[in-house]
Design a protein around this nucleic acid. Sequence first.
DNA 1: TTAAAAAATGTATAAATTTGCAATCTTAAT
DNA 2: ATTAAGATTGCAAATTTATACATTTTTTAA
Lengths: 156, 156
Amino acid sequence: MKTRTQRLLAIRKIIENNKVSSQEELVEKLAKKGFHLTQATLSRDLKYLRAAKIADSARGYIYFLPSRETEHANLLAGENFPLNGFVSLEFAWHFGVIRTLPGYAPSIASAIDNIGSWQVIGTIAGDDTILVIPREGTTKEDVKNMLARLIPEAVQ
Amino acid sequence: MKTRTQRLLAIRKIIENNKVSSQEELVEKLAKKGFHLTQATLSRDLKYLRAAKIADSARGYIYFLPSRETEHANLLAGENFPLNGFVSLEFAWHFGVIRTLPGYAPSIASAIDNIGSWQVIGTIAGDDTILVIPREGTTKEDVKNMLARLIPEAVQ
DNA sequence: TTAAAAAATGTATAAATTTGCAATCTTAAT
DNA sequence: ATTAAGATTGCAAATTTATACATTTTTTAA
């Protein structure tokens, strides 16, 4: 007889290695591995594991397990630790240009990328300069607000 | 009249700053901000934004926006990640922006440069982002067609 | 060991989310 | 300007997920 703990592990493994679109589908996969349970129980297991369902281009929706780090980072995104090396922010045409101390551009650009802001499609960093590419339709102010979350002094 | 883009931004903001447990609840919050839409449309918006629902001790379940890191990890976990690190292609202000897995941008940019398309004047690659600069007068479609030759999944 | 308490589960159903379809609105091309 | 193609949306229905309640299983404490 399989234990609940074994089952939870099996669920983790399946979710991590396969694209699973629904609980019914997962119930079937688990049955093949010898775990017999109902969709209701699975729903509770997924809640316990803090699994989440997200859009996926291939399968519509898939389940995944957000990392501790991510959840934490997500929470920190609002308040957050100081970023060193920022020098200035200016806008040219529709783009933002951030100047940093030499060598600091990559880390700041990475931080901007990681907060996953809707307003910013991407950044490109050299050594001491970052090009910030805003999404079409967003304004300078939108981008500033987004940056303010990371680098308050950038927008003063 | 509020635009879809504005609405998507509003949704991000609400999700990031509040614990929202259901789409109906979010529909109401949006209505208070002047965005009137049905739950069905919201479902599509959340799919587009790749929002996910996760268990939360306080509210049962809440929506959240996973960071790009998570999505990358996720892509890597599912055996098939597209040709050499390609992640996404978007356009903004006449420019194409390609996102790649960390470290892959230079190689993909180089490949684009090497096919020597007339439509593309040049590319600039950071670590995980490529700015594609189209020749003046070319359309989004022109650039997509050109990219399709290299990265079919970029244009689906 | 045994009784009481807590945890886990299934059933049935409620609640929530997704989607096919038709209509409407936007965008792009001529 | 006109037309065609594409995007967006609401409605209603289908699908999927969560949960109240009852029952069974496991754990705890004497």
